[in-house]
Amino acid sequence: MTHSVITKEMKAAIGVESEPVVNEVEKGAIIKFAQAIGDQNPAFNNEQAARNTKYGGLTAPPTFLRSMKLGKARAEIVKPYSATLDGGSKWEYFEPVRPGDQITVTHYLADLHERQGKLGNMLMIVRETKYTNQFDKIVVLQRSTEINYQPTK
């Protein structure tokens, strides 16, 4: 690669935490999410059946937190290419997510790196999102990768 698309301004955005935003976990939203992904597990769908689980009630499916609102970034980057694809996610789970939980969401840009691949020059944008509950416990950490690239046509 002759020159990097990662500018000084972009590097300066790494590690800058977003504004926090609090999301309340609604029971109906959990059930709607479970139904949308086609997961019949009673732990996610049926309050009465979930009473008999170790959590004594409904919990959210593993990727439910995708539906949470994100806080406004305090440092934004201007993406060098016009198209972006979701590359993947890495989740770490610490606490269950329950109806009524107040989840504080913050995120920050964790890493930028360039790669050559099927899509040509790609900028990999890695963000980390932290979900904390009302007991100040980290519930989930999520690291997601966006692939920014220039479409050929």
Partner: peptide, 27 residues
């Protein structure tokens, strides 16, 4: 992509069963 992520989440929570726990998922 996130829906496929959810499918793999279900694969793992089905495997873990009611007394197991999912600790990490990478897709």
């Amino acid at each position: 992509g996130a829906l496929k992520n959810a499918f793999l989440g279900q694969l793992m929570t089905d495997f873990a069963g009611p007394d197991g726990d999912l600790k990490a998922l990478h897709v």
